[in-house]
Computed example of a mutant assay.
Amino acid sequence: MKKFWNWSVKDSNRILTIDGTIAEESWFDDDVTPKIFKEELNNGDGAITLWLNSPGGDCIAASQIYTMLMEYSGDVQVKVDGLAASAASVIAVAGTTVSMASTSMMMIHNPFTMAMGDTDEMKKAIDMLTQVKESIINAYEIKTGLSRSRIANLMDAETWMNAKKAIELGFADDILQDNKKEAIDGYSFSMRTVANALWNKARQEKKADPPQTKEPMETIESLKKRLSIISH
């Protein structure tokens, strides 16, 4: 079995990475793959950071992962660092919070399938896709608060969203911050603090200096004497 997910631990934090196509080997009629995922998910506790980069895949697999993450007792912080398209967008909205890189994208569209047979079989396929779409709308509605008709229209149009658009529509909560920039800003602030401290210290030392010795003022008599000399 080729797994499309991976678990790791960093600084005691659980990291789940979903990268690539979701379920290249479909989970349909497969009680092994989802069971393994669920066991690994529940093999620990506490908050989970989910790094997501996927073009989508099997909607059944996405639905099961969505449900497992929604039922998980700890917080799930979803971070989209590349693409969360199609079925992957369903997994994304399972997060307690959803953050997107400034360069990442999210895409939602109508589900599709392949079917063959007579008109009755085609009608069954259409009915099935209609119900799948309604189930996906359920997940989007919980996350965004948008009306079902608005979400349906966005799916009909195959809507691509950058981070700001996804936040505007409610599919995401914020943009991933640049930790390097925060570190530089913090360093700059420290430098200003040091400079101000040195300046204040210099001012205090200047005030503490003993006053300069001044020459005594000339008496009136000595001044008259000097003026007398000059006049002659």
Rank of each mutant, 00 (worst) to 15 (best):
E24Q: 07
M100W: 03
T213R: 11
N6K: 06
V194L: 06
F28T: 13
A183G: 07
N42K: 10
I142Y: 09
K225D: 14
F171R: 02
R14G: 03
A61F: 04
G56E: 00
T96L: 03
Q212T: 15
M106Q: 03
Q131F: 05
I18S: 02
K133M: 08
D31F: 09
L50W: 02
S99F: 02
I229P: 05
D19A: 08
S149T: 15
N179W: 08
L154M: 15
E71K: 07
F4K: 01
Q64Y: 09
K164P: 07
K206N: 13
H109F: 04
K3G: 02
G20R: 00
T119Q: 06
L176D: 02
K133I: 01
A101Y: 09
Q204G: 13
M128A: 13
I175F: 03
D120Q: 02
I220F: 12
L223Q: 08
S228R: 12
F4W: 06
K180I: 12
T17D: 12
E40D: 12
M161V: 11
K165F: 06
W7V: 07
L69H: 01
F112C: 08
D118C: 06
E39N: 14
W199Q: 15
N13K: 11
E24C: 04
S149M: 12
S135D: 15
D19F: 09
G56P: 02
G82C: 10
L154F: 10
N179C: 11
